[in-house]
Structure formats: structure tokens, C-alpha cells
Amino acid sequence: MLYNIFIDPFVQMAQMPDLLVQTLWEGLVAGVLYALIALGFVLIFKASGVFNFAQGIMVVFAGLTLVGLYEKLSPSTGQGLGAFLALVLTIGVMFVLAWTIERVVLRPLVNQPDIILFMATFGITFFLIGFGESIFGGSPKKMITEQLLLPTGAIDLNILGGRVIIQKLDIAAAVIAGLMVAGLALFFQYTRIGRALRAVADSHKAALSVGISLNQIWVIVWFTAGIVALVTGIMWGARSDVSFGLSVIALKALPVLILGGFTSVPGAIVGGLIIGIGEKMGEFYWGPLVGGGIESWLAYIIALAFLLFRPQGLFGDKIIERI
């Protein structure tokens, strides 16, 4: 038994490096998507102190809106133009959503305890589910992957004495996610809005005293989180289907946040990758020992183990101080 746990998996890794690389790659891709979801949480948490339960639903809602609009538009515009228009309109919808949430939810509740705001995000969740279903229907939809000019198919690599199969879409997902994170980092570091966002994240009262409008900042940060959700929705939807079932992936964000810290953008990214890779490795090499199915709970075990040693997360300052 000890041999099976501590020795055999590593022997396998050494003997079949192609499988190891394949598993690592799959973990990496899953990790990138977890990281994106966690990133959406962190942005909102930093700027408004709200733990946004709705982030997972925002992913689905964005994906559903995109596909739904495409279905309505493409018969008259053709596929390519339809997809492009649907994308632009969906970005617009995410902005309207951010603006509405600020007006209807955040602004009236601003001086309420954080738990009230947390509960309000449950409200947003159910609103988005109901609203999305009533407009676009409840049945799962296929993501418009090719129409958005995302690559499909796979690359077959004959390396390391075996085969490694890499989906082109996964490469695109990793590259796009990387670009988006880099873009956000530059935005935060070098623009005036970015500076204001960092200021608000550091101290609300100081930001208010110099005349930064929290309302404006909230719209911007919810909109940014909406865009992150849209990208996540496209990538995730392309690998399965777009349906509200997808929102359970948001549950994966929690262990990522525990690992990375609730207030750290690098933490969200590194945490996402660790969880993604850890999960796939665990499932592949240790899963058979317990009859499989490790993937659904291993993330929590990793996060909990980590919590014991570093409660503030990898890069975080203070953990969940605000809820």
C-alpha cells in the first residue's frame, strides 16, 4: 500500500514521460481557467470588499448571451459578422450589467455589513439564471468556437517515446488568458484608472478623501470582472457546452482563492495553476487507488492542507477579513 502511494506513481512518471507531460498539460489548461475565475473574484473583492458569489454565473451568463445573440443575429448577417457583432454586443451587455449592479445593488447597500452585500450577490446569481433562461432558453448550447476564429482540432506530438495530444483550442486558451492577465497588469500599473483602482483597494477612506468616485470604480471593476467572465465562458464553453451546469466550476475558485489569498492577483493565477495541475496529477496517478473521482474534492484537500501552514494564502495580506 505504501509502495502504491509513495513509490509507484513516481516510477510511472519516470517510465512514461509522455503521459506525465500530457497530464501536466491538461492540468495547466484547467488551471488557467480556474485562475481566470478566481481573478474575477479577486478584482471585485479588492475594489469593493464584496465576495461575489455570482462570479460563476457571470461566466455562464456571458457565454450564453454570446451564443444567444449569435443565434439571433447570424441568420441575417452571416456567420463571421454575426459572431463579431455578438461579441461586441455581449461586451456591451456586460457593461450594462456592471452599471446596473452598481446602481441597484451596491450603491443602496454601501454602508451595510459585508454579509448583506454577500447575500445580495446570491440575489444577482438567481436573477441572472432566471433572466438568462427566459431570454435564451434553458437548454445547453454549443459555443461558437469556429465562428470566433478559435482554432479547433489537435496537435499530435510523437515525443518522449510516446504520443502527446494537445488541443489547439487549449493552446489558444492559455495564450489568450496569458495576454489578458498581462494586459490587466499593465492597465493597473500604468493607467490613471488603474492607479485609482489600486488606491481604492488599499484604502477606501483615503481614496474618497481625494475625490475618487467609488461608484465609478465599482462599475469599472465589475465590468472588468465581466470581461474576464466572458473570456472564461468562451474558453470553458468551447470544451463542453454552455449551460448553467457550468457554474459549478465557480466552486473550484474557492480552493484557488484559499491558496492564492483573496486579495492577490498573482495569487489567483499561481493558485489556479497549482490546483489545476494538482488535481489532474492526483486523478491520474493516485485516483485509481481510491477508485477514481478524486478530481472533484482533491482541490479542497490541497487548499485545506495549505490553509494550515499559511492561512493568508500564497501572496495574500489578510484572509477573508471582510466577510
Binding site: T191, R192, I193, R195, A196, R198, A199, D202, S203, K205, A206, A207, S209, V210, G211, I212, Q216
Partner: peptide, 27 residues
């Protein structure tokens, strides 16, 4: 009450927020 993670320069720059007239998104 300062923005602890930011430099002295950036902290003071934030004080200019309201004096910046070019539209927010222009930035």
C-alpha cells in the same frame, strides 16, 4: 491613511485625480 502598496510618487499622483480633465476612458 495612505495607499500602502504604492510609491510616494503614485500616492501623491492620486491626489491629482480630480484635476485630470481628459475623460476617464481616454487614459
Amino acid at each position: 491613511a495612505l495607499f500602502k502598496g504604492m510609491t510616494t510618487l503614485d500616492n501623491i499622483m492620486v491626489g491629482r485625480t480630480l484635476k485630470m480633465s481628459s475623460p476617464f476612458f481616454w487614459q
